[in-house]
Amino acid sequence: MATLQAATTSNGVTVTDAQAVRELCESYYLKMLEWEVDDNDRLSIWGYDAFEVYGRRENGLPDYEAGQRTHEFLRALATHVKEGDELDIQTAGFTKCRFPVLASRYVVRHGDVLRADLQTLEPVEDQTV
């Protein structure tokens, strides 16, 4: 069985309400990724894992049964991104056979979330679960 090794990084984006963004990030489970809203109200996300967001149960553990909530999280985040700025989140991963098996990119702007794989940048559709 091949083990996936992935890394995620982002640029920093200025947010309009730093406390609301902190609460948003704390209410979701971002796997093994780190996030920070610094003193200049800039959010960054990084770490050695794929960018996948899940709900967080009351006990702090991830709610895998409810499925991924990545798009839901990003749409909520988009309401707090400063006009004219954008958060660019990129993930790349591979297995021990060294072939890239994972590549994704999310661009979050005020009121807008775009997703790309290795081909195109497309709008994220609003999906109800």
Rank of each mutant, 00 (worst) to 15 (best):
M1E: 09
A2S: 12
T3P: 06
T3E: 12
L4H: 10
Q5L: 12
A6L: 02
T8V: 04
T9K: 09
N11H: 01
G12N: 10
G12S: 14
V15K: 00
V15I: 00
D17P: 09
Q19M: 01
A20R: 10
R22E: 14
C25W: 00
E26A: 12
E26K: 15
S27M: 02
S27E: 11
Y28V: 04
M32K: 15
L33E: 02
L33W: 04
E34I: 00
W35G: 03
E36M: 07
V37M: 01
D38E: 09
D38P: 13
D39N: 13
N40I: 05
N40W: 05
D41N: 05
R42Q: 12
S44D: 11
S44R: 14
I45V: 15
I45W: 12
W46N: 04
D49K: 01
D49W: 00
A50K: 03
A50V: 11
F51L: 11
F51G: 00
V53A: 06
Y54I: 02
Y54H: 12
G55K: 12
E58H: 11
N59A: 03
N59W: 05
N59C: 14
G60A: 13
G60R: 11
D63G: 02
Y64M: 00
A66L: 14
Q68C: 14
Q68A: 15
T70R: 06
E72M: 08
E72G: 10
F73E: 11
L74F: 07
A76R: 06
L77W: 02
L77D: 03
T79P: 00
H80K: 03
H80N: 13
K82P: 04
E83F: 14
L87S: 03
D88H: 03
I89N: 07
Q90I: 13
Q90G: 04
G93W: 00
G93D: 08
F94V: 05
F94Y: 02
C97P: 05
C97K: 10
R98S: 13
P100A: 04
V101Y: 15
L102V: 11
A103F: 02
A103H: 07
S104D: 08
R105P: 08
Y106E: 09
V107R: 10
V107W: 06
V108N: 01
H110N: 06
H110Q: 09
H110V: 08
H110M: 05
G111K: 08
G111Q: 07
G111R: 00
L114D: 07
L114W: 14
R115D: 01
A116M: 06
D117G: 14
D117T: 13
L118H: 01
T120N: 08
V124H: 08
E125N: 03
E125S: 08
D126N: 07
D126F: 12
